[in-house]
Deep mutational scan, measured.
Amino acid sequence: KFNKERVIAIGEIMRLPNLNSLQVVAFINSLRDDPSQSANLLAEAKKLNDAQAP
């Protein structure tokens, strides 16, 4: 279950337009470290993406 959620979360994070490459890598590394947190990490990535919108 967590592996599928992690793959989906990674794909979504990679498509967030307002994150820089270091932020994307940090979120992906966090997902690798704890796949059970996929939903929480994706939500945090989306919040950061929205906050950094031009």
Rank of each mutant, 00 (worst) to 15 (best):
N3L: 08
F27L: 06
A26F: 13
M14P: 01
I13M: 04
I10C: 10
R6A: 15
P35L: 06
L22G: 10
D50T: 06
D33K: 11
R32I: 14
P17C: 07
M14K: 11
K4I: 04
A39Q: 11
I8C: 13
A53G: 11
I28M: 11
L19T: 00
I28S: 03
E44V: 12
V7C: 15
N3H: 14
I8N: 04
K4L: 03
L48H: 02
F2Y: 06
D34P: 02
N49A: 03
D34N: 09
Q23M: 03
E44I: 11
D34G: 03
S21M: 12
G11N: 07
R32L: 14
I28R: 01
D33V: 12
N20M: 11
L19H: 01
Q23S: 02
F27E: 01
S30E: 10
K1C: 15
K46A: 04
L48T: 04
M14N: 04
S30P: 01
L22Q: 13
V7W: 14
A43M: 13
P54T: 09
K1W: 14
P54I: 11
D50I: 08
I10G: 02
V24E: 02
G11H: 08
M14T: 05
A43V: 07
D34Y: 07
R6K: 12
V25Y: 09
D50F: 07
I13G: 00
V25F: 14
S36N: 05
E5R: 03
V25T: 10
R32C: 15
E5H: 06
Q37W: 06
L41P: 00
L48D: 01
N18C: 06
A26Y: 08
K4G: 13
R32N: 15
I10D: 02
S38V: 14
P54E: 09
S21N: 10
K47N: 08
K1I: 14
V7Y: 14
I8W: 05
F27Y: 06
Q23P: 00
A26H: 11
A45L: 02
L41H: 03
S38A: 12
E12L: 14
E5T: 04
L42C: 04
S30R: 13
A39N: 09
M14G: 05
M14V: 10
N40I: 09
R15E: 04
N29Q: 11
N20I: 06
K47P: 01
N29G: 07
A45D: 00
S36W: 08
A45G: 01
V24S: 03
K47M: 11
V25M: 12
A43S: 13
K46W: 05
I13D: 00
K1N: 15
S38Q: 05
I28H: 02
A51V: 09
F27K: 01
K1T: 05
R15N: 09
R32S: 14
A51W: 08
A39F: 13
S21L: 13
L22E: 10
N20K: 10
I8D: 03
A45Y: 04
E5L: 11
L31T: 02
P17L: 07
F27S: 01
Q37V: 06
R15F: 05
I10L: 10
N29Y: 05
M14W: 03
S21A: 12
S30T: 12
S38F: 14
V24P: 00
A26V: 10
A39R: 11
N18W: 12
E44N: 05
P35D: 08
I8P: 02
I13N: 00
K47H: 08
E44D: 06
D33P: 01
A43F: 06
S30I: 12
S30M: 13
V25D: 08
N49H: 02
L22S: 12
S30F: 12
R6Q: 15
S21W: 14
E12P: 01
N40Q: 11
L19R: 00
Q23N: 02
S36M: 08
V25G: 10
P17Q: 08
Q37Y: 06
N18Y: 12
L16V: 00
I28L: 13
S36V: 08
N18D: 02
K1L: 03
K46Q: 07
A26D: 10
K46G: 02
E5Y: 04
F27W: 02
A43Y: 12
Q52T: 05
N3W: 15
P35N: 05
Q23I: 04
F2H: 15
K47F: 07
L22N: 12
A53L: 06
S38W: 15
R6F: 15
D50R: 08
F27Q: 00
E44P: 00
Q37M: 09
E44T: 08
I8Q: 08
V7G: 04
F27I: 06
E44K: 06
D50P: 00
I13T: 00
K1F: 06
L22I: 07
R6E: 15
E44M: 13
Q52V: 05
V24G: 01
D34F: 09
V25W: 13
N40T: 10
Q23D: 03
N20G: 06
A39T: 12
K46R: 13
S38T: 11
S21C: 14
A51C: 13
P35W: 13
E12F: 14
L31R: 00
L42K: 03
E12K: 13
E12V: 13
I28Y: 02
S21V: 11
D34K: 05
S30W: 11
K47Y: 06
R15W: 04
L48A: 07
P17W: 04
F2L: 15
I8M: 13
R6D: 15
L22F: 11
E5P: 02
L19V: 01
N3G: 11
A9P: 01
I10F: 05
S21G: 09
N3P: 15
L41Q: 04
A51M: 12
N3F: 08
Q52W: 04
I10Y: 04
R32K: 14
D33T: 11
K46S: 05
K1A: 14
Q52P: 02
Q37H: 08
S38I: 15
K4S: 13
V24R: 07
Q23A: 02
A53F: 08
N40F: 12
N3A: 07
K1E: 15
L42M: 05
L19A: 00
A9T: 11
V7A: 14
L22Y: 12
L22W: 14
R32H: 11
A51N: 10
M14I: 13
I13R: 00
Q23Y: 02
R15Y: 04
V25I: 13
A9L: 08
A45F: 03
I28G: 01
A26S: 13
N20T: 13
A51K: 10
E5A: 08
D33E: 10
S21F: 13
Q37R: 13
E44Q: 12
P35V: 05
P35I: 07
G11C: 15
A51Y: 12
L16F: 04
N18P: 00
L41A: 10
P17K: 10
L41N: 02
L16A: 00
P54A: 11
E44F: 12
A53N: 07
S36A: 12
I28A: 03
L16Q: 03
N18A: 03
N20E: 04
A39D: 05
S21P: 11
Q23H: 02
A45V: 02
G11E: 11
N49T: 01
L19E: 00
E12Y: 12
Q52M: 13
Q23F: 02
N20H: 12
S36L: 08
N49F: 02
E5K: 03
L41S: 03
R6P: 13
S38M: 15
R15I: 06
F2K: 15
N29F: 12
F27R: 00
K47Q: 10
A45C: 02
P54H: 10
L42H: 02
P54R: 08
L19G: 02
K47L: 08
A43E: 08
R6Y: 15
L31E: 01
P17T: 06
A53P: 05
L31A: 03
P54M: 12
V7E: 15
E12H: 09
